[in-house]
Write a protein that binds this DNA or RNA. Structure first.
Length: 411
RNA sequence: GGGUCGGUGCCCGAGUGGUUAAUGGGGGCGGACUGUAAAUCCGCUGGCUCUGCCUACGUUGGUUCAAAUCCAACCCGGCCCA
Protein backbone atom coordinates (compact mmCIF):
# COMPACT_ATOMS: atom_id res chain seq x y z
CA UNK A 1 0.00 0.00 0.00
CA UNK A 2 1.81 3.09 -1.13
CA UNK A 3 1.46 5.85 1.34
CA UNK A 4 2.43 9.23 0.03
CA UNK A 5 5.47 11.05 1.29
CA UNK A 6 4.87 14.47 2.76
CA UNK A 7 5.44 17.36 0.34
CA UNK A 8 8.25 18.91 2.38
CA UNK A 9 10.14 15.67 1.97
CA UNK A 10 9.48 15.19 -1.71
CA UNK A 11 10.38 18.70 -2.71
CA UNK A 12 13.48 18.69 -4.86
CA UNK A 13 14.18 14.99 -4.42
CA UNK A 14 16.56 13.47 -6.93
CA UNK A 15 16.59 9.92 -5.69
CA UNK A 16 15.29 7.82 -2.84
CA UNK A 17 16.23 4.23 -2.20
CA UNK A 18 14.90 1.76 -1.45
CA UNK A 19 11.80 3.19 -3.02
CA UNK A 20 9.40 0.41 -2.27
CA UNK A 21 5.70 1.14 -2.21
CA UNK A 22 4.93 -1.64 0.24
CA UNK A 23 3.95 -1.35 3.86
CA UNK A 24 7.34 -2.77 4.83
CA UNK A 25 9.13 -0.13 6.89
CA UNK A 26 12.46 -1.46 5.65
CA UNK A 27 11.49 -0.88 2.07
CA UNK A 28 9.19 2.10 2.08
CA UNK A 29 10.15 5.38 3.64
CA UNK A 30 6.52 6.38 4.00
CA UNK A 31 5.90 3.24 6.01
CA UNK A 32 8.99 3.90 8.05
CA UNK A 33 7.87 7.40 8.85
CA UNK A 34 4.51 6.10 9.91
CA UNK A 35 6.09 3.47 12.09
CA UNK A 36 8.32 6.07 13.69
CA UNK A 37 5.36 8.32 14.37
CA UNK A 38 3.47 5.44 15.92
CA UNK A 39 6.36 4.47 18.15
CA UNK A 40 7.15 8.10 18.94
CA UNK A 41 10.71 7.40 18.05
CA UNK A 42 12.12 10.04 15.73
CA UNK A 43 14.23 8.87 12.83
CA UNK A 44 17.94 9.52 12.87
CA UNK A 45 18.83 11.50 9.78
CA UNK A 46 22.49 11.42 8.93
CA UNK A 47 24.31 14.09 7.02
CA UNK A 48 28.06 14.06 6.79
CA UNK A 49 30.20 17.03 5.88
CA UNK A 50 33.89 17.10 5.33
CA UNK A 51 35.48 20.19 6.77
CA UNK A 52 37.89 20.57 3.90
CA UNK A 53 37.36 24.22 3.21
CA UNK A 54 36.30 27.17 5.22
CA UNK A 55 33.17 28.28 3.41
CA UNK A 56 29.80 26.70 2.96
CA UNK A 57 28.04 27.73 -0.21
CA UNK A 58 24.50 27.45 -1.49
CA UNK A 59 25.26 24.14 -3.12
CA UNK A 60 25.82 22.64 0.31
CA UNK A 61 22.93 24.46 1.84
CA UNK A 62 20.28 22.51 -0.05
CA UNK A 63 21.22 19.48 2.01
CA UNK A 64 21.01 21.43 5.21
CA UNK A 65 17.64 22.81 4.22
CA UNK A 66 16.37 19.28 3.81
CA UNK A 67 17.93 18.25 7.08
CA UNK A 68 16.22 21.19 8.72
CA UNK A 69 12.92 20.07 7.25
CA UNK A 70 13.38 16.72 8.95
CA UNK A 71 14.17 18.48 12.20
CA UNK A 72 11.05 20.57 11.92
CA UNK A 73 9.08 17.38 11.39
CA UNK A 74 10.39 16.13 14.70
CA UNK A 75 13.27 13.95 13.64
CA UNK A 76 16.83 13.95 14.89
CA UNK A 77 19.50 15.42 12.68
CA UNK A 78 22.79 13.64 13.10
CA UNK A 79 25.38 15.94 11.68
CA UNK A 80 28.68 14.21 11.22
CA UNK A 81 31.73 16.36 10.98
CA UNK A 82 34.07 14.26 8.94
CA UNK A 83 37.15 15.41 10.78
CA UNK A 84 38.80 12.06 10.23
CA UNK A 85 37.65 11.35 6.69
CA UNK A 86 38.47 14.88 5.60
CA UNK A 87 42.04 13.93 6.03
CA UNK A 88 41.69 11.21 3.44
CA UNK A 89 39.68 13.21 0.97
CA UNK A 90 36.47 12.16 -0.67
CA UNK A 91 37.19 10.97 -4.18
CA UNK A 92 33.62 11.83 -5.23
CA UNK A 93 33.60 14.36 -7.99
CA UNK A 94 37.32 14.72 -7.85
CA UNK A 95 39.42 14.10 -10.84
CA UNK A 96 42.54 13.90 -8.77
CA UNK A 97 43.67 12.73 -5.39
CA UNK A 98 42.70 15.27 -2.83
CA UNK A 99 45.35 16.94 -0.77
CA UNK A 100 45.39 15.60 2.72
CA UNK A 101 44.73 18.13 5.43
CA UNK A 102 46.31 18.46 8.82
CA UNK A 103 44.31 17.87 11.96
CA UNK A 104 44.59 21.52 12.91
CA UNK A 105 43.22 22.73 9.58
CA UNK A 106 40.34 20.34 9.84
CA UNK A 107 39.48 21.51 13.33
CA UNK A 108 39.49 25.14 12.34
CA UNK A 109 37.29 24.42 9.33
CA UNK A 110 34.84 22.46 11.42
CA UNK A 111 34.37 25.39 13.74
CA UNK A 112 33.68 27.85 10.97
CA UNK A 113 31.25 25.39 9.42
CA UNK A 114 29.19 25.18 12.55
CA UNK A 115 29.18 28.94 12.84
CA UNK A 116 27.92 29.23 9.28
CA UNK A 117 25.21 26.69 9.95
CA UNK A 118 23.92 28.99 12.62
CA UNK A 119 25.53 27.94 15.87
CA UNK A 120 25.34 30.96 18.10
CA UNK A 121 23.22 32.95 15.68
CA UNK A 122 19.64 34.05 16.10
CA UNK A 123 17.43 31.02 15.32
CA UNK A 124 15.59 32.73 12.46
CA UNK A 125 18.84 33.08 10.51
CA UNK A 126 20.19 29.69 11.43
CA UNK A 127 20.18 27.00 8.82
CA UNK A 128 19.73 24.23 11.35
CA UNK A 129 17.74 24.03 14.56
CA UNK A 130 20.42 24.18 17.21
CA UNK A 131 18.11 24.94 20.08
CA UNK A 132 15.20 22.49 20.28
CA UNK A 133 16.23 19.58 22.51
CA UNK A 134 16.61 16.27 20.77
CA UNK A 135 16.68 17.68 17.27
CA UNK A 136 20.40 17.77 16.65
CA UNK A 137 23.39 15.63 17.36
CA UNK A 138 26.77 16.83 16.20
CA UNK A 139 29.35 14.11 16.04
CA UNK A 140 32.90 13.96 14.79
CA UNK A 141 33.79 10.76 13.05
CA UNK A 142 37.22 10.65 14.63
CA UNK A 143 35.26 9.53 17.71
CA UNK A 144 34.94 6.07 16.25
CA UNK A 145 37.32 6.04 13.29
CA UNK A 146 40.50 7.15 15.01
CA UNK A 147 40.38 4.15 17.31
CA UNK A 148 39.90 1.42 14.68
CA UNK A 149 42.63 -1.17 14.86
CA UNK A 150 44.07 -3.08 11.96
CA UNK A 151 41.84 -6.17 12.30
CA UNK A 152 38.81 -3.87 12.19
CA UNK A 153 40.14 -2.07 9.15
CA UNK A 154 40.71 -5.40 7.47
CA UNK A 155 37.17 -6.44 8.29
CA UNK A 156 35.91 -3.27 6.61
CA UNK A 157 38.10 -3.80 3.57
CA UNK A 158 36.95 -7.39 3.28
CA UNK A 159 33.35 -6.32 2.79
CA UNK A 160 34.10 -4.94 -0.62
CA UNK A 161 35.96 -5.96 -3.74
CA UNK A 162 38.15 -4.05 -6.12
CA UNK A 163 35.53 -4.61 -8.77
CA UNK A 164 32.90 -2.98 -6.59
CA UNK A 165 35.14 -0.05 -5.92
CA UNK A 166 35.87 0.39 -9.58
CA UNK A 167 32.14 0.42 -10.20
CA UNK A 168 32.12 3.84 -8.60
CA UNK A 169 31.99 6.22 -11.48
CA UNK A 170 34.73 8.49 -10.32
CA UNK A 171 37.15 5.67 -9.71
CA UNK A 172 36.25 4.10 -13.01
CA UNK A 173 36.89 7.33 -14.87
CA UNK A 174 40.16 7.90 -13.18
CA UNK A 175 41.29 4.35 -13.67
CA UNK A 176 40.26 4.45 -17.29
CA UNK A 177 42.05 7.68 -17.98
CA UNK A 178 45.19 6.68 -16.19
CA UNK A 179 44.78 9.22 -13.40
CA UNK A 180 46.33 7.86 -10.24
CA UNK A 181 44.15 6.44 -7.51
CA UNK A 182 45.81 5.99 -4.16
CA UNK A 183 44.80 2.92 -2.24
CA UNK A 184 43.75 4.89 0.78
CA UNK A 185 41.03 6.48 -1.31
CA UNK A 186 39.25 3.15 -1.40
CA UNK A 187 38.94 3.48 2.33
CA UNK A 188 36.84 6.59 2.06
CA UNK A 189 33.52 5.03 1.03
CA UNK A 190 34.03 2.33 3.63
CA UNK A 191 34.65 4.79 6.41
CA UNK A 192 31.73 6.97 5.42
CA UNK A 193 29.62 3.85 5.38
CA UNK A 194 30.90 2.88 8.78
CA UNK A 195 29.76 6.26 10.06
CA UNK A 196 26.22 5.09 9.38
CA UNK A 197 26.86 2.06 11.54
CA UNK A 198 28.38 4.15 14.30
CA UNK A 199 25.43 6.49 14.57
CA UNK A 200 22.75 3.90 13.72
CA UNK A 201 21.41 6.03 10.93
CA UNK A 202 17.86 5.54 9.63
CA UNK A 203 18.34 7.71 6.59
CA UNK A 204 21.32 9.39 5.00
CA UNK A 205 21.11 12.62 3.07
CA UNK A 206 23.50 13.40 0.30
CA UNK A 207 23.99 14.76 -3.16
CA UNK A 208 23.49 12.45 -6.10
CA UNK A 209 27.25 12.04 -6.25
CA UNK A 210 27.02 10.35 -2.87
CA UNK A 211 24.96 7.41 -4.04
CA UNK A 212 27.82 4.97 -3.92
CA UNK A 213 28.89 6.00 -0.44
CA UNK A 214 25.35 6.00 0.93
CA UNK A 215 24.76 2.58 -0.52
CA UNK A 216 27.98 1.45 1.10
CA UNK A 217 26.50 2.56 4.41
CA UNK A 218 23.58 0.20 3.82
CA UNK A 219 25.92 -2.68 3.05
CA UNK A 220 27.95 -2.10 6.16
CA UNK A 221 24.94 -1.68 8.40
CA UNK A 222 23.69 -5.00 7.12
CA UNK A 223 27.12 -6.52 7.69
CA UNK A 224 27.09 -5.32 11.29
CA UNK A 225 23.58 -6.55 11.89
CA UNK A 226 21.81 -3.22 11.70
CA UNK A 227 18.71 -2.17 9.87
CA UNK A 228 19.96 -0.52 6.66
CA UNK A 229 19.39 3.17 6.23
CA UNK A 230 17.42 4.82 3.49
CA UNK A 231 19.31 6.94 1.04
CA UNK A 232 17.81 10.29 0.12
CA UNK A 233 19.67 12.14 -2.57
CA UNK A 234 19.25 15.71 -3.65
CA UNK A 235 20.38 17.17 -6.94
CA UNK A 236 23.72 18.81 -7.29
CA UNK A 237 23.07 22.51 -7.50
CA UNK A 238 24.30 24.03 -10.73
CA UNK A 239 26.68 26.92 -10.18
CA UNK A 240 26.25 30.49 -11.29
CA UNK A 241 27.52 29.55 -14.71
CA UNK A 242 24.44 27.36 -15.08
CA UNK A 243 26.45 24.48 -16.43
CA UNK A 244 28.83 23.00 -13.94
CA UNK A 245 28.04 22.10 -10.39
CA UNK A 246 28.48 24.75 -7.79
CA UNK A 247 31.96 24.33 -6.51
CA UNK A 248 34.47 26.59 -4.96
CA UNK A 249 37.23 25.45 -7.21
CA UNK A 250 35.16 26.45 -10.22
CA UNK A 251 34.53 29.87 -8.79
CA UNK A 252 30.80 29.72 -9.46
CA UNK A 253 29.59 29.79 -5.90
CA UNK A 254 27.60 31.96 -3.58
CA UNK A 255 28.93 31.61 -0.06
CA UNK A 256 26.68 31.66 2.96
CA UNK A 257 29.10 34.11 4.50
CA UNK A 258 28.79 36.63 1.73
CA UNK A 259 27.24 39.98 2.34
CA UNK A 260 23.72 40.75 1.23
CA UNK A 261 24.77 42.86 -1.73
CA UNK A 262 27.28 40.35 -3.05
CA UNK A 263 24.82 37.54 -2.63
CA UNK A 264 21.95 39.38 -4.25
CA UNK A 265 23.89 40.66 -7.20
CA UNK A 266 25.25 37.25 -8.02
CA UNK A 267 21.87 35.57 -7.72
CA UNK A 268 19.94 38.02 -9.83
CA UNK A 269 22.09 36.92 -12.74
CA UNK A 270 21.57 33.18 -12.60
CA UNK A 271 20.84 31.77 -16.04
CA UNK A 272 17.14 31.30 -16.71
CA UNK A 273 17.68 27.60 -17.26
CA UNK A 274 18.55 26.98 -13.64
CA UNK A 275 16.04 29.34 -12.04
CA UNK A 276 13.70 26.40 -11.46
CA UNK A 277 16.35 24.53 -9.53
CA UNK A 278 17.22 27.52 -7.43
CA UNK A 279 13.61 28.22 -6.58
CA UNK A 280 12.88 24.60 -5.72
CA UNK A 281 15.99 23.86 -3.79
CA UNK A 282 16.80 27.12 -2.10
CA UNK A 283 13.49 28.83 -1.44
CA UNK A 284 10.00 27.93 -0.37
CA UNK A 285 8.52 29.73 -3.34
CA UNK A 286 6.49 28.01 -6.00
CA UNK A 287 8.98 26.97 -8.68
CA UNK A 288 6.58 28.32 -11.28
CA UNK A 289 6.80 31.73 -9.66
CA UNK A 290 7.00 34.48 -12.23
CA UNK A 291 7.78 32.17 -15.06
CA UNK A 292 6.37 34.60 -17.56
CA UNK A 293 8.95 37.22 -16.71
CA UNK A 294 12.43 35.81 -16.40
CA UNK A 295 13.96 39.00 -15.13
CA UNK A 296 11.42 39.39 -12.35
CA UNK A 297 11.91 35.76 -11.55
CA UNK A 298 15.62 36.19 -11.06
CA UNK A 299 14.98 39.12 -8.79
CA UNK A 300 12.42 37.22 -6.75
CA UNK A 301 14.68 34.28 -6.18
CA UNK A 302 17.65 36.48 -5.41
CA UNK A 303 15.56 38.39 -2.90
CA UNK A 304 14.18 35.26 -1.26
CA UNK A 305 17.54 33.56 -0.91
CA UNK A 306 19.29 36.67 0.31
CA UNK A 307 16.49 37.29 2.80
CA UNK A 308 16.75 33.80 4.21
CA UNK A 309 20.28 34.59 5.16
CA UNK A 310 20.30 38.28 5.92
CA UNK A 311 16.69 39.09 6.67
CA UNK A 312 14.18 40.73 4.40
CA UNK A 313 15.21 44.26 5.21
CA UNK A 314 18.84 43.79 4.31
CA UNK A 315 17.88 41.85 1.22
CA UNK A 316 15.61 44.63 0.00
CA UNK A 317 18.33 47.17 0.59
CA UNK A 318 20.73 44.99 -1.38
CA UNK A 319 18.21 44.84 -4.20
CA UNK A 320 18.00 48.61 -4.32
CA UNK A 321 21.77 48.98 -4.15
CA UNK A 322 22.27 46.48 -6.91
CA UNK A 323 19.93 48.41 -9.15
CA UNK A 324 21.86 51.59 -8.44
CA UNK A 325 25.19 50.00 -9.16
CA UNK A 326 24.10 48.67 -12.48
CA UNK A 327 22.69 52.03 -13.39
CA UNK A 328 26.14 53.43 -12.86
CA UNK A 329 25.22 55.27 -9.73
CA UNK A 330 27.72 55.07 -6.99
CA UNK A 331 25.69 56.78 -4.35
CA UNK A 332 24.56 53.53 -2.88
CA UNK A 333 24.85 53.83 0.87
CA UNK A 334 26.55 50.48 1.14
CA UNK A 335 29.61 51.39 -0.90
CA UNK A 336 32.36 50.11 1.33
CA UNK A 337 34.89 52.55 2.64
CA UNK A 338 38.60 52.20 2.29
CA UNK A 339 41.03 54.06 4.44
CA UNK A 340 43.90 56.00 2.93
CA UNK A 341 45.72 56.06 6.23
CA UNK A 342 48.19 53.34 5.33
CA UNK A 343 49.02 54.72 1.91
CA UNK A 344 52.30 56.58 1.64
CA UNK A 345 51.93 59.68 -0.46
CA UNK A 346 52.78 60.67 -3.09
CA UNK A 347 51.11 57.62 -4.55
CA UNK A 348 50.71 56.52 -8.13
CA UNK A 349 47.19 55.60 -9.17
CA UNK A 350 48.04 51.96 -9.85
CA UNK A 351 49.80 51.68 -6.55
CA UNK A 352 46.65 52.92 -4.86
CA UNK A 353 44.55 50.21 -6.51
CA UNK A 354 46.82 47.41 -5.43
CA UNK A 355 47.38 48.77 -1.93
CA UNK A 356 43.66 49.02 -1.35
CA UNK A 357 43.21 45.46 -2.47
CA UNK A 358 41.08 46.29 -5.49
CA UNK A 359 43.65 44.65 -7.69
CA UNK A 360 45.74 41.63 -6.89
CA UNK A 361 48.97 43.29 -7.92
CA UNK A 362 50.20 46.62 -9.04
CA UNK A 363 50.91 45.19 -12.46
CA UNK A 364 47.30 44.13 -12.74
CA UNK A 365 46.25 47.58 -11.62
CA UNK A 366 48.22 49.19 -14.44
CA UNK A 367 46.57 46.87 -16.91
CA UNK A 368 43.14 47.71 -15.60
CA UNK A 369 43.90 51.39 -16.04
CA UNK A 370 45.15 50.78 -19.55
CA UNK A 371 42.06 48.76 -20.29
CA UNK A 372 39.81 51.58 -19.19
CA UNK A 373 38.33 49.75 -16.25
CA UNK A 374 39.13 52.26 -13.55
CA UNK A 375 37.13 55.34 -12.67
CA UNK A 376 37.49 57.98 -10.01
CA UNK A 377 34.20 59.68 -9.18
CA UNK A 378 32.84 58.37 -12.44
CA UNK A 379 35.67 59.73 -14.52
CA UNK A 380 37.75 57.26 -16.42
CA UNK A 381 41.41 57.16 -15.49
CA UNK A 382 43.71 56.70 -18.44
CA UNK A 383 47.02 58.16 -17.37
CA UNK A 384 49.37 55.49 -16.08
CA UNK A 385 51.71 58.00 -14.56
CA UNK A 386 48.99 59.81 -12.65
CA UNK A 387 50.19 60.49 -9.15
CA UNK A 388 48.38 61.85 -6.13
CA UNK A 389 50.45 63.99 -3.85
CA UNK A 390 48.31 63.85 -0.74
CA UNK A 391 45.40 61.96 0.74
CA UNK A 392 43.33 65.13 0.80
CA UNK A 393 43.12 65.00 -3.00
CA UNK A 394 41.17 61.77 -2.75
CA UNK A 395 39.12 61.89 0.39
CA UNK A 396 35.43 61.38 -0.15
CA UNK A 397 35.85 60.27 -3.74
CA UNK A 398 34.65 56.95 -5.09
CA UNK A 399 37.11 54.67 -6.79
CA UNK A 400 35.56 52.17 -9.18
CA UNK A 401 36.94 49.05 -10.79
CA UNK A 402 34.85 47.54 -13.50
CA UNK A 403 31.13 47.68 -13.07
CA UNK A 404 30.78 46.07 -9.73
CA UNK A 405 33.57 47.13 -7.46
CA UNK A 406 33.29 50.45 -5.70
CA UNK A 407 35.17 51.88 -2.81
CA UNK A 408 34.76 55.20 -1.06
CA UNK A 409 38.04 56.71 -0.03
CA UNK A 410 38.22 57.99 3.51
CA UNK A 411 41.12 59.36 5.56
C1' G B 1 62.59 -4.08 -8.43
C1' G B 2 63.48 -3.78 -14.18
C1' G B 3 62.17 -1.20 -18.76
C1' U B 4 60.05 3.02 -20.90
C1' C B 5 57.70 7.78 -21.40
C1' G B 6 56.76 12.16 -18.98
C1' G B 7 56.66 16.57 -15.16
C1' U B 8 56.06 24.05 -18.74
C1' G B 9 52.58 29.90 -16.40
C1' C B 10 45.36 29.49 -12.77
C1' C B 11 44.24 24.75 -15.93
C1' C B 12 45.24 22.04 -20.53
C1' G B 13 49.08 22.14 -23.79
C1' A B 14 53.17 23.85 -27.76
C1' G B 15 58.17 24.66 -27.63
C1' U B 16 64.17 20.60 -27.73
C1' G B 17 70.66 25.67 -27.08
C1' G B 18 70.57 31.84 -28.93
C1' U B 19 65.71 38.58 -29.75
C1' U B 20 61.03 38.45 -26.59
C1' A B 21 57.77 36.21 -19.56
C1' A B 22 57.79 31.68 -23.39
C1' U B 23 52.81 29.83 -29.57
C1' G B 24 47.68 28.09 -28.89
C1' G B 25 43.16 26.84 -26.18
C1' G B 26 40.25 27.14 -21.63
C1' G B 27 39.31 30.02 -17.52
C1' G B 28 39.64 34.87 -15.39
C1' C B 29 39.63 40.31 -15.54
C1' G B 30 38.44 44.81 -18.21
C1' G B 31 35.78 47.46 -22.61
C1' A B 32 31.39 47.51 -26.17
C1' C B 33 26.55 45.43 -26.58
C1' U B 34 21.98 43.64 -23.52
C1' G B 35 16.18 43.13 -19.45
C1' U B 36 20.75 41.18 -15.71
C1' A B 37 23.32 37.28 -17.83
C1' A B 38 24.68 34.30 -21.97
C1' A B 39 26.34 34.67 -27.00
C1' U B 40 29.35 37.97 -30.01
C1' C B 41 33.34 41.53 -30.86
C1' C B 42 37.86 44.08 -28.78
C1' G B 43 41.89 44.39 -25.09
C1' C B 44 44.61 42.27 -21.03
C1' U B 45 46.21 37.91 -18.37
C1' G B 46 54.43 36.66 -13.56
C1' G B 47 56.01 40.56 -9.91
C1' C B 48 57.78 45.49 -8.64
C1' U B 49 55.40 53.20 -6.79
C1' C B 50 57.64 50.37 -14.02
C1' U B 51 60.49 54.39 -19.88
C1' G B 52 63.68 50.18 -16.15
C1' C B 53 64.58 46.16 -12.69
C1' C B 54 63.55 41.35 -10.73
C1' U B 55 61.71 36.07 -10.66
C1' A B 56 60.08 31.99 -13.76
C1' C B 57 59.50 26.03 -17.45
C1' G B 58 59.47 19.25 -10.92
C1' U B 59 64.16 19.86 -7.28
C1' U B 60 69.43 20.45 -6.79
C1' G B 61 73.91 20.76 -9.11
C1' G B 62 76.80 20.76 -13.78
C1' U B 63 78.31 21.81 -19.17
C1' U B 64 78.16 26.48 -22.20
C1' C B 65 79.54 33.18 -24.09
C1' A B 66 74.23 31.43 -23.84
C1' A B 67 69.51 26.35 -21.40
C1' A B 68 62.60 25.34 -20.45
C1' U B 69 65.70 23.08 -24.19
C1' C B 70 72.22 19.23 -23.15
C1' C B 71 74.33 16.15 -18.68
C1' A B 72 73.91 14.01 -13.50
C1' A B 73 71.48 12.90 -9.13
C1' C B 74 67.05 13.17 -6.65
C1' C B 75 61.52 13.73 -6.11
C1' C B 76 56.66 12.76 -8.39
C1' G B 77 53.51 10.33 -12.03
C1' G B 78 51.71 7.10 -16.54
C1' C B 79 52.36 2.53 -19.18
C1' C B 80 54.62 -2.47 -19.75
C1' C B 81 57.17 -6.45 -17.18
C1' A B 82 58.15 -8.80 -12.40
Amino acid sequence: MGQALPPWLERGLADLFPAGESADPDQSLAARLQQAAGAERPLRIKLGIDPTGSDIHLGHSILFRKLRAFQDAGHTAVLIIGDFTARIGDPSGKSATRVQLSAAEVDANADTYLAQLGLGQPPERALLDFTTPGRLEVRRNSEWLAGLDLPQVIELLATSTVGQMLAKEEFANRYGSGTPISLHEFLYPLLQGYDSVAVASDLELGGTDQKFNVAMGRDLQRHFGQRPQFGLLLPILPGLDGVQKMSKSLGNTVGLNEGALAMYSKLEKVPDAVADDYLTLLTDLDPAHGRSNPRERQKALALAITASRHGLEAASAAQADAANLVAGEMKAPSVPEASLAAIPFPAKAFHLLSSLGLCASSSEARRQIQGGGVRLDGEKLTDLTLEFSAASELEGKVLQLGKKTFVRLVP
